[in-house]
């Protein structure tokens, strides 16, 4: 599966390299998106000095991680899931299912949007700027916790996408899933601790925005406890199993008559 993923990655890069001008389009979009995000932050901090204990530089760290993770989602997770959605609707998923490889693995690695990684670069730059202005200490342990929580966050986001996309096996037309996710993911621009309790629960356990953005930011700003890190690892394993089971359950419902 690893070599298969590498091959798809290579093909994806070659495909994207045919349209080099798209890099500049993507860069323009990333900068505009960053500017609008920053305007929201700036407007808020023109009225106050901190938001529920988070300073402006700490919120820049959150924003950097939000943009970075958005780049990962747009480059890898979302294109694969929207393709899956389309194939379920058209009945062409048969072509993937009949290949001699694990179906879940295969449908998760076929697409790669190289230029969306621009967001990853922009995110890292914002993150670095936020950390630079952050008053606290960022050492080796915090950095390791950050990397680990970022990895687990992206796995959780992938699981959420897979579960939601798999609902297409029953409902067929769930095209708005992209809007649903993008709308809710936007909540990650701010730390989930500022939201009401009911929304915090939703953004943590139903749609794991908290694990994708806030917890990595907490790791960098020394707010993360070992218990939360262990809990995140446990939840990542749990969600991975649930996503796998849900996918298999959905597959049993697939009839792909039109391929």
């Amino acid at each position: 599966m690893f070599y298969l993923a590498l091959n798809y990655l290579r093909v994806g890069i070659q495909n994207e390299m045919q349209y080099r001008a798209n890099f500049f389009v993507q860069l323009g979009q990333s900068l505009i998106s960053l500017a609008t995000g920053y305007i929201g932050l700036w407007l808020g901090f023109s009225q106050t000095n901190e938001l529920n204990g988070w300073t402006e530089s700490e919120l820049l760290v959150v924003m950097g991680i939000f943009v970075l993770m958005g780049g990962v989602i747009n480059a890898i997770i979302q294109p694969n899931m929207t393709r899956l959605l389309e194939e379920i609707q058209l009945g062409t998923l048969d072509y993937a299912l009949t290949k001699p490889a694990d179906a879940q693995g295969l449908i998760s690695v076929r697409e790669f949007r190289l230029w969306s990684l621009t967001d990853v670069v922009v995110g890292i730059m914002v993150l670095s700027y936020g950390v630079w202005h952050y008053q606290g200490y960022v050492g080796m342990i915090q950095s390791l916790e950050f990397m680990l929580s970022l990895l687990m966050g992206s796995i959780l986001i992938y699981c959420f996408w897979l579960i939601t996309t798999s609902t297409a096996f029953w409902f067929v037309r769930v095209d708005e899933i992209v809007n649903l996710f993008q709308g809710i993911y936007a909540a990650g621009r701010w730390p989930v601790s500022i939201y009401p309790r009911w929304l915090q629960v939703g953004l943590t356990f139903i749609i794991p925005v908290a694990f994708a953005v806030t917890i990595p930011a907490e790791a960098l700003t020394s707010r993360l406890t070992p218990l939360i890190l262990v809990g995140t690892a446990a939840l990542t394993i749990f969600f991975s199993v649930v996503a796998r089971l849900f996918w298999r359950l959905g597959l049993k419902n697939y009839s792909g008559a039109s391929a």
């Binding site: 929201g40 106050t48 708005e176 809007n179 649903l180 909540a187 621009r189």
Partner: peptide, 27 residues
């Protein structure tokens, strides 16, 4: 179902603004 998917995604945006600005107002 599609409509509700869209609406829930769409409602997230004002809820974020609302929470942020209510927090600032209280502060």
């Amino acid at each position: 179902v599609v409509q509700y998917f869209y609406m829930i995604g769409m409602i997230a945006e004002p809820v974020i603004y609302l929470v942020v600005w209510s927090t600032i107002a209280r502060a």
